[in-house]
Design a protein around this nucleic acid. Sequence first.
DNA 1: GGAGTCTTCCAAAGCGCTTTGGTGATTTTG
DNA 2: CAAAATCACCAAAGCGCTTTGGAAGACTCC
Lengths: 340, 340
Amino acid sequence: MNLKQLSHMLALSQTTVSRALNGYPEVNEETRRRVIDAAKRHGYRPNPSARRLATGKTGMIGYVLPTGTTVDIDPHFVEFLSGLGDYARSHELDLVLSPADADDQETTYRRIVANRQVDAVYISSPRPADRRVALVNTLGIPFIVHGRSEGFDFDYPFTDIDNEGAFHEAARLLVQLGHRRLALINGDDRETFAIHRERGVRRALAASGLLLRDQHVCSLTMTEENGYRAARRLLEQSDAPTAIACSSLIMALGVVRAVRDLGLTIPGDLSLIAHDDVFPWLKPENFSVPLSTTRSSIRLAGARIAERLAARISGLEEGARGEVWPVDLVVRGSVAGAPA
Amino acid sequence: MNLKQLSHMLALSQTTVSRALNGYPEVNEETRRRVIDAAKRHGYRPNPSARRLATGKTGMIGYVLPTGTTVDIDPHFVEFLSGLGDYARSHELDLVLSPADADDQETTYRRIVANRQVDAVYISSPRPADRRVALVNTLGIPFIVHGRSEGFDFDYPFTDIDNEGAFHEAARLLVQLGHRRLALINGDDRETFAIHRERGVRRALAASGLLLRDQHVCSLTMTEENGYRAARRLLEQSDAPTAIACSSLIMALGVVRAVRDLGLTIPGDLSLIAHDDVFPWLKPENFSVPLSTTRSSIRLAGARIAERLAARISGLEEGARGEVWPVDLVVRGSVAGAPA
DNA sequence: GGAGTCTTCCAAAGCGCTTTGGTGATTTTG
DNA sequence: CAAAATCACCAAAGCGCTTTGGAAGACTCC
C-alpha cells in the first residue's frame, strides 16, 4: 500500500493525502480525518526510503563505533545504550552504528554526513581538542557530545557529569578523615573525564597543602586486571597510599583483590572510593566491604542525550548549551580514618 | 556531485556511468576505467537514499533491541558487537539498532521488514519456539540466529556454541573428581542456552547414576548479586553441593564472594567451573583462585554472524545451515577432588 | 456585483539512483 | 555478402515520497 494507491481510493491527490498525514494546515479537518482513518485502516506507512530521498530526513541517529581487533568497546556502552534506546523507542528513532577503524573515524563521519545517513550524531569518550568534535561541528550536522572536550575556539553542545567535582568531593572526604597519601587509579588519561577527575583530586589535596605525587597516579584502561596491577604497584611502594580513588567499579574489583592478596584490609589499611556508573550487574553495595562511590547513572545520560538529539533534529533545541550533572557521593563501609 | 553531473562531465549517459561503477559487463573496459577514475577524482559517492529507493538494498543489518526501564541489555552484547563491527567495518556495512518494547518486538520486526530498512537481521538470546524466529522466517528477510531455538517444523540458519557439550564436559570432570552433589547456577532458563547447559549437566550426572536435584538448580539473570544469592542458598542447604557449574563469569564473582562470606574455600570446600564468554575486562585466570572455565569467545561469534549475514545478503549463502561451535574446557585452580 | 481573500485541493516537478527496452555500429557466421 | 549476433551505449521510466506553483470555488467587503 503506497501513497498513490491510498490517494486513489480516497479520490484525492497524493499532495493532499501527504499533507493531511503530515499535519499541514491547508487541508480540511474533515478530509484529514478521512485520510488518517483510511491510512490506519489499510495499514499505510510511508516508505522511509522514499521519504528520506525527498526530505533528507532519516529518523535515525548515528554513532561511529571505533573497532579493530585490538580495540575493545567499553562495557559502559551497553548501559548508555539502554538509556538511549529507552528514549528512542518512544519516538521511533533508530540508532545506526557505523563501525570505523579506531584510528580513522573521520572518514566515516564524513561519509555518514555526506550521505545524509543520519539526522544527528553523538560523540562519546571525547578527548581535549578532540578532532571528531571539531569535524562534526564544521560538517554542520546536529550533534551532542557525551562528556566534554576542551581547547576549542567555539562552543558546542554537551552533556557531561561533574567529574572534577565528584573526585574533589571524594578526595576531600578522604583528607578530612586524615589521609595524607592519596592515590588515583584513573582511566585512560587522554580522555577528558580522566583529566577532570585528576584535577578534582589535586584541587582537594592542594586545599590542605597536600600533593598528588606522580607515582600515586595510574592511568589505564578500565579492566579488573589493570585495577589489580595498579593497586599492587601503589601498595608495594615505600610510601604506599592509605586511600585510593578509583575511576571504575571494574577496576575496583581488581583493587580489592590486590588488597586481599597483600594481606591488607579495607578500610583498616586502605580506604577506597570508586566511581559507579550504575551497572545492573555489579553493585558497589555488594562488594565484600561495601564500596563508597561517586555515583552517576550513565543510563540516564543515554536517555538525556537521545532526548537532546531528538530536540535538535526537530529544531526545538539549538545553540551550544552544555549541561553538567552533579554526581552523588555515597559513603559506605570502604572508607575510614587513616591508619596511625 | 551526483550521477547526473558526473555523467555530464564525462559526456556519457547516466546509465553507462552507473553500470560502469557497478561492474556490469555491457560497458567497454576503457570507458569503465575512465569513469571509475573520474568518480574517484571528484569524490563521487552514490547517494545511498536514492540507491535504496531504486534497489531496495540498504547496506545495513538490523537488530531489534529490547528496551524498557526495567530491561537491562546484556553486557555480553558489547563483546558481540565488537566482533560484528570488526567484520562489518571492512565491508562497509552499518548496523541499525531498532529499540523495541521488550514485550512487543514483533511490531518492530514487521516495521523494519515492511519498510525495507535493513537487508538482514540477526536474533540473539533465542528461546524455544521463539516467536521472533518464526516471524522473521515467514517475513522472508535474510537472518541468522545467534544461539538456537527449538520445536519448529522448519529449519533455520544459526550459529551457536555447544552449550550442552560444554557443561557436559564440565560436569563430567567434576564427577570424575569424586563430586556427587553438583549444583548449577544458570542463566534465565527460558532461554535455550540455559536449557542446553542444564541438559549437559544432567546427562553427565546420569552417566554415573547421579541426579541433579531441583534444589541444586538456580536460574537467574546473570548479575553478581544473583550469583551471590544463588551460592548462599545452595551452600546453606543441608545437602550443600561440593561443586558448582556456573553460567557466567559475572555470577561467579558473586559465588566467590558468597564462599568467602561463609568461611569456605575454593577448591577445598567447593569446586567451581564457570562459562567464560571472554571479556577483556574480567578474566578467569585473575580470580583470587584462578577459575576453571568453559570458554568460547562471543566476539568471534559476532564476527562470524556478520560474515554470514553479508554472505546471505549477497546470495552467497542460502539454506538453513546451522553451525555449532565446540567449547574449550580450561582447567585452572578452582577445581579439586571432592572433600571427604 | 466585481475585486480581493481565504480555503482547499491538485498536477507535476523534483530527490538521485537503477533498470528496461532500445538503437546504431561492428563483428561474426554460413 | 547478406543475415545474425555482439558490443557499447542511451533515453526514459520507474522507485514513493514531498513540495512548488497554481487554480477553482467560497466568502468577505465596499
